[in-house]
Design a binder for these strands. Structure first.
Lengths: 111, 111
DNA sequence: AAGATACTGAAGCAACAACTTCAGTATTGT
DNA sequence: ACAATACTGAAGTTGTTGCTTCAGTATCTT
């Protein structure tokens, strides 16, 4: 379960929620416990844990239990997968843009 | 409504669905009508239109009605917004990675 | 003009998402 | 040992998604 390949659906889903992006922004600063993360969010601990599960699934966060505290840190795999996806699609997207530019300029010639 | 700034929530939400990503992949090849898009998807026209609405909201697709046909094309604004977001977060992410590398090597020194 | 085509709009429905509450279970501090 | 802390798990609620059906309305085509 730990090294499942990253599911792009889960990744986009994870990133689509503002609370989860807030958690990520928080973790960019430093690792934090669940309750510390919960503090500024105005939601219950339970809800935060649920968000964390989704972020872990997307490999954007890694957590580990130390004593009674669950320490949460950023994981890079998810973010790298996003960059990879974006890069892969960029080339196709660009090709298409070039093609349309062509079509357009041909239309200009033969209106 | 046309030039609303792009909402990152809508953007990620739009990209989080495989049917919608399939539509985008299709439109990278060439513009298409709603019914042409529907053909390989195995869902109703109505469902496709609903997906298109979400893609338009995210500025990933632009559609325009010509006669009785709605022609759908890729729009770049959404994709560019995604790249922008990724770029913006990359720097923060990198800073953090450096910091953790530091912390880690300090731990190595004082265990 | 009449039929075929290409959507459009409203309504409904099952599954899922983001919460909550409440009742635990470990760990830690005194 | 005992209380406080830091979660954990199950269950329930409310709203949103991704679909459907069905009944239109334009716009071709012949």
């Amino acid at each position: 379960m730990r090294d499942r390949p990253i599911d792009i659906n889960r990744l986009f889903h994870a990133l689509g929620d503002p609370t989860r992006r807030a958690i990520l922004d928080r973790l960019v600063e430093r690792p934090a416990s669940v309750s510390r993360l919960a503090e500024p969010l105005g939601i219950t601990l339970t809800a935060v844990v649920q968000h964390l599960q989704i972020l872990e699934d997307a490999r954007l966060v890694h957590t580990e239990k130390l004593g009674r505290v669950r320490v949460c840190r950023l994981e890079t795999a998810g973010f790298r997968a996003l960059e990879q996806w974006t890069r892969n699609h960029r080339t196709a997207w660009e090709r298409k843009l070039d093609r349309f530019a062509e079509l357009l300029s041909e239309e200009d010639k033969n209106p």
